[in-house]
């Protein structure tokens, strides 16, 4: 009989619920959420930290859950897309994505929304970015900042322009560039 792989106990809080798991130590946080806790809202797009579809919030900070082993998260509070809102009670960012059609196939969407929520917090918290005019000052809540900070979340359906509008609405930023689809006579 082959030797069993090493397992380890880990306790997490996921969307406010305690989860006690005994996991193969090779299990990523992403696969723990999907295959062990059954929260399929967090998506696996590449499993290599290249696409952002697996973005979740860990203690309020966004991470690629595919790049992190679950057993590294003892005691951590994880928020997934299911923890942000439900179809009956949407989070404002989820509602804005629906209104502005900030998605098409929907597969990158949970990661985009988790990232979008975190990005607005990051700008508010003064975390600097590459596009900031003055790296010593506070970043402005602009669409440029949002686009830069969202660039780790790929969307092959190409909903970026609409996602920017959804985020601007939630951030309370007026962007002159917001337009509805137009049918011209």
């Amino acid at each position: 009989m082959a030797q069993q792989p090493p397992t380890m106990a880990v306790s997490l809080e996921v969307n406010g619920e305690p989860q006690a798991l005994m996991l193969d130590t090779r299990t990523t946080l992403l696969d723990a959420l999907r295959d062990h806790i059954g929260l399929m809202g967090t998506k696996k797009g590449c499993d290599h930290g290249q696409c952002g579809a697996c973005t979740v919030l860990v203690n309020g900070i966004r991470i690629n859950s595919c790049l992190s082993l679950a057993v590294m998260h003892e005691g951590d509070a994880v928020t997934t897309i299911e923890g942000l809102g439900t179809p009956q009670e949407l989070h404002p960012m989820q509602a804005a994505f629906v209104k502005h059609d900030g998605f098409q196939c929907g597969y990158c969407t949970p990661g985009q929304i988790c990232s979008a929520v975190a990005v607005l917090d990051e700008i508010k918290a003064g975390i600097p970015s590459h596009v900031q005019g003055d790296i010593g000052g506070a970043p402005d809540m602009t669409v440029l900042e949002m686009r830069e900070r969202m660039s780790g979340n790929l969307c092959r359906c190409g909903a970026y322009s609409n996602i920017a509008e959804a985020m601007a609405e939630v951030a309370g930023v007026r962007i002159a560039e917001t337009h509805d689809a137009e049918v011209r006579v």
């Binding site: 686009r147 830069e148 790929l154 322009s161 920017a164 560039e177 049918v183």
Partner: peptide
């Protein structure tokens, strides 16, 4: 393309 590569896009459909 990523977010930072794409500007606002305008679309018009003829009626």
């Amino acid at each position: 393309p990523v977010h930072a590569d794409i500007p606002h896009q305008d679309v018009v459909f003829l009626d």
